[in-house]
Design a protein around this nucleic acid. Structure first.
Lengths: 260, 260
DNA sequence: ATGCAGGCTTGATCTGGGTCAATGCCGGAA
DNA sequence: TTCCGGCATTGACCCAGATCAAGCCTGCAT
């Protein structure tokens, strides 16, 4: 059946887009790897078919074999405490790596679950480790990515440790906006792929609080919410509310200080 | 030359103890590096003279040149929000690395300050990066250490995101106890090098709350406090209070699941 | 179309822990 | 020895946000 073959060679989200042709290669692991060397990286990467919403990419306790890069869609990673309550550690957008926390213990400490239909690249870790011995650019970038992850987690600790509910949600929205923007999407308008409950579990708030804050922000004219859709009407004021020197997303756009 | 060798073999806290003779080499970066190769690692390391209590090793915003390993004493790393309030990210004991969060941005996002007289090994990062291209064991360990840091930060996010004050302090004490124990000190009795305020800033609590909890734990017979000195009287019950499956420090001792 | 389930909103109430304030204690300087 | 400054403890009060409890919307399955 030729039809079967045809099915595969299509859209932007084709399962087999090589790193070189991938629209994310300026954001993802290949950053800083020589174009000539990207093929080698490409060769060890395994493209999986899309994960339907709600499916797990891995679960806490699973043996560690690979790290994953999100290609399309989004994931959440989370820990479940014995009280049953989830702590969401992160929401992961295209171009971001998940599973870096598993290297040390050879097992995944967190579970990862698709928030929508999501495809990922699987990168077997032993191969990656070997390859990065040969490609200085790759080793560099790997260390950088891990360092950035540490830094991001620290930011989250600040948020959880000392910000008010209002500040938390504002910071969360600004952060999301920045990340979408860097990926070429609108900074002022986007869809949340996660539920209010997930946001609460991420920010250390009850989902009711999250909900109330959305309506309050809306009443204050900061944004407009419609279910999952968010439109930021006054980004600057929202920044103020977040109680943090916000990286102006202007600066982000200009890539002034970013990578390298 | 036997003389050169002799120079090196002195007191435990001698400024110039080489990695090979350092009592921490089973805990610190050299883990997993071949004994033959440790000399090379040793060669790039710069031993500084001790930092007096209260001095900064680096400050937020400083250019990133090196990572540091604590040799003796202890440090806290912290961010200061514009409200002036500190968020303490970690307390660092001998054998632990600090500064890993600076790699990505080429600048330190946090400040690091000595909690007591503290000596550190300075490891220039470019040298380290280069060397780890040659020594697979070193690259491996570096990735592992960073991964562990990510994992630890995630644990802290759980603590800050969903634990009660009581659970936080209990978890903190158990964690400290484990870390002391791994370094060969008593697990049931130790001195805190940080103030109540620091503990509060670490756990996201007011110092008054920390103080109250100490006295409450003492009244409950869980521990004895005398200023900086802590004696854990009922580790198991304290574990329960922490609301986490506590790694029994037995297991820790046996090194059952630890590294490699 | 109808019903149902899962998610969201909104209101009412309660409480853990923050804040403010006073007092106590220890250790170092003179 | 005394004084002083930085921590630590303890008490009284209060509020942000959790919890409990309806009710609601929307999209899917029958």
């Amino acid at each position: 059946m030729p039809t079967r073959k045809l099915e595969k060679v299509v859209s932007l989200h084709d399962i087999r887009v090589a790193c070189l042709e991938c629209s994310l290669n300026e954001i993802c692991l290949p950053v800083g790897v020589d174009a000539d060397d990207i093929e080698q990286l490409d060769a060890i990467i395994d493209r999986k078919r899309p994960l339907p919403r709600g499916d797990h990419l891995f679960r806490a306790g699973d043996a560690f074999k690979s790290i994953f890069a999100v290609r399309a869609g989004s994931l959440k990673t989370y820990a479940t405490s014995q009280s049953g309550q989830e702590q969401v550690m992160g929401f992961h957008l295209p171009g971001e790596l998940v599973g870096l926390d598993a290297i040390a213990r050879n097992a995944h400490p967190l579970s990862a679950r698709a928030l929508e239909t999501t495809s990922v690249c699987e990168i077997p870790f032993t191969d990656l480790e070997e390859l990065s011995m040969q490609l200085p650019g790759l080793q560099r970038e790997l260390l950088r990515v891990m360092s950035r992850e540490i830094h991001d987690d620290e930011q989250n600790m600040v948020i959880l440790g000392q910000k008010s509910a209002e500040e938390r949600l504002a910071a969360f929205l600004i952060g999301l906006s920045n990340r979408f923007h860097r990926r070429g999407f609108s900074a002022s308008q986007f869809n949340l792929s996660m539920s209010r409950g997930d946001i609460g579990d991420y920010l250390g708030l009850a989902l009711e609080t999250v909900s109330r804050l959305f309506t309050r922000f809306q009443n204050d004219g900061l944004l407009r919410v419609d279910r999952k859709h968010i439109e930021l009407l006054n980004r600057d004021r929202l920044c103020l509310f977040s109680g943090a020197r916000c990286h102006q997303h202007q600066a982000e756009t200009a890539k002034s200080s970013r990578s390298n």
